[in-house]
Design a protein around this nucleic acid. Structure first.
Lengths: 240, 240
DNA sequence: GGAGGTTTTCGACTATTAGGCGTAAACCCT
DNA sequence: AGGGTTTACGCCTAATAGTCGAAAACCTCC
């Protein structure tokens, strides 16, 4: 093979152009369960089914900016605490109308918020989804797995939790995302040791049901930090 | 906001179409260092600089298939042991000729192979890259980080190592990817405990330099397995 | 065929981290 | 004040990681 055979570029003007859309799995913990924001389709295809919010990419727009714009415009959602690109889907007939490539994002909303959303959108518990449009159900699954993984080796929790919270509240959030029970003792110990959360000096206002008021904690950083997952094989002498 | 304002779809025929290409950071451990396969550009822009292998997406082609096709056609590379989608770059002027969206992949090649590659391609150690074209250098960085992370909580090592190997050989591979020294004792103990590798009954042929011949090991599975990274917070009673 | 060198393997010991549990602390209400 | 409830925390055990050194199994050379 010689260089002159690398001819794709010389014919690039004849290669395809593709419709491109951005989508987001918007997650929030509501009533002890992980929910995703869905939007009811008013027209064919998949009329009446529920779809992820998003929309077409603009001509001079970045993928991430495009998504923020669509979320703000379509579902009045501007308080996205965390946004991360997930994956790009390219199945030729994922949209029956025209081939459309979709780049999916994971978006997280604090459980302290209750954003006002349009009447044709709703929150659904991710393990009780309604009939969904396109390949959106499988995108939600990918997003769940990404979130599960990130929760364990990063501090993304800050995007789901309120500014300050009790360990019990945090436990609910982690359990909802991970899909299994979580030990409060271990959760607190591990997150403290990793310096992901820290105690504040204030305690929660006592609840009517009695009980010792919890000391409120906060996330030390509110930007993404990964707790070095390479520790296993690294000589301890070189650790931070 | 009411449903009739979700109008992007009704105007979808007027939204942009975009050129889309696939790229791969093809990694292999060569001479104790992590290398990436690059391709020398014969024409403007970035003439003479080195670029990731890849090419334009076909009209009815999946991203992954497209990449395999380009790798096979352009660099005679058919022995990709592992392929994973990395991220999609959308910067408007990442290609000065025309806006081109790129989906980047991570591809791994066994260190036991020495594929014949065209004369205008070459392997470069990832920490001594030549002048690179477009945003390809930063894609290589992303790929390195992904590889580092995956090595620690999955068995992707199978894609980089030979069928069977001594612990010493495996140590070299891990060290090259992680960028720091690795303890052979811990490496063996951790991977054995996780059942990622297992000992075979054969020993390596003794080297000319003497020394006890190593027992050869192999990866238990040669498909991707993630060692549950959620163990930290999960009640031990529920673990596999 | 033994001596000395080289490389791998393995066991012993220590340090660190995770998990379980019970008790104390700090609030509620009556 | 006493009973109920929830959180906090210390103690103990188990599991995993890290260090080190000795032994095993090969080589070459004398």
């Amino acid at each position: 093979m010689n260089p002159s055979q690398h001819s794709d570029e010389s014919t690039s003007d004849f290669t395809g152009r593709f419709r491109h859309e951005v989508l987001a799995a918007v997650f929030q913990v509501r009533e002890r369960r992980l929910h995703s924001l869905l939007w009811r389709r008013a027209r064919s295809p998949f009329e009446g089914d529920w779809a992820l919010p998003g929309g077409p990419l603009g001509r001079v727009e970045l993928l991430g900016s495009s998504l923020s714009r669509h979320l703000a415009a379509k579902v009045d959602l501007t308080d996205i605490a965390y946004l991360e690109q997930l994956e790009t889907r390219s199945d030729v007939d994922r949209d029956p109308r025209e081939r459309t490539i979709a780049t999916a994002y994971l978006a997280l909303v604090s459980s302290a918020l209750n954003p006002s959303i349009p009447s044709d959108t709703a929150w659904f518990a991710v393990d009780e989804l309604p009939a969904t449009a396109f390949d959106h159900a499988s995108i939600i699954q990918s997003a769940r797995e990404r979130l599960r993984a990130k929760l364990t080796y990063t501090n993304v929790g800050y995007a789901l939790a309120p500014e300050t919270f009790s360990i019990a509240e945090l436990r609910v959030i982690y359990a909802a995302c991970l899909g299994h029970d979580v030990s409060a003792t271990n959760l607190q110990r591990v997150l403290l040791r990793r310096h992901i959360i820290e105690a504040t000096s204030v305690t929660a206002t006592p609840s009517a049901s009695g009980g010792r008021p919890a000391t409120l904690h906060r996330f030390t950083e509110r930007t993404l930090l990964v707790t070095d997952p390479f520790a296993v094989f690294r000589p301890p002498s070189e650790r931070p």
